[in-house]
Design a protein around this nucleic acid. Structure first.
Lengths: 125, 125
DNA sequence: CAGTATCCGTTGCGATACTG
DNA sequence: CAGTATCGCAACGGATACTG
């Protein structure tokens, strides 16, 4: 029992958050470059593929498709196909998806608020 | 004025969050593979370089150094050198860093809680 | 201890083209 | 519209070696 904890409580080394833990992969999926933006956009309302592509500035079709499949695989995004011609596919958040996205939206909002301070820090650096 | 909003309120396309906006780069830095983990570890207590390396399972020296420099550049992490021999360098969060990390920790905690549900979704997929 | 530098395989990701 | 397939470069990131 050292007073200085060299070995943390157990989340990041040798326990729940070590590199082999599934939490890591979920975290990676959810915080990936595009997933954050896609999730936050979807939290506002369901979107069709093309609308999503336009809403997330700069994303390619390939990355959008890939991101959506990953998110769907983890149960965050729900895909719904309407049997019309031409077929309309719409994406939305699942209950689980709304959960993560709540945290993500908080993060994104915070960053927007504090951008000036970060920019100021960059000046100094 | 369409009832279906094709053009979102303005955060993700043509406004604050478009691809050229600095918010994007801050978001990318903060949500990068290792930054999330480093920040959450630092939120518990200050760490020396080696302790940090041990606490974040799987990180290489290179990526730890690189992550710390980026985070320091954005004003989230504070580096302190003690003039001893051998020199001891310790890293901690700045006020700004504690702000983002609050959101990050919430996200990480949520994921840990809900891992079973995500795993179940993966089974089905 | 606290890093930096170099090498180099792996992956991310955009561009382009094609399908139902 | 809603994707999939293939290519190819650039960045990511690990291993190793070297420095103050």
């Amino acid at each position: 029992m050292s007073t200085q904890v060299e070995r943390p409580t157990g989340l990041f080394s040798g326990d729940a958050f070590d590199s082999s833990c599934p939490s890591r992969s979920v975290l990676d999926h959810v915080t990936s470059k595009w997933a954050v933006l896609v999730l936050v956009v979807l939290s506002r309302e369901d979107h069709r593929f093309s609308a999503l592509r336009r809403a997330v500035d700069g994303i390619s079709e390939k990355m959008l498709a890939q991101t959506l499949r990953t998110l769907e695989g983890d149960g965050f995004v729900h895909r719904e196909v309407a049997a019309t011609t031409p077929p309309q596919v719409s994406y939305g958040l699942t209950e689980l998806g709304r959960g993560v996205t709540g945290h993500l939206a908080g993060l994104v909002g915070w960053i927007e608020d504090r951008i000036p301070e970060v920019l100021a820090a960059r000046e100094r650096a």
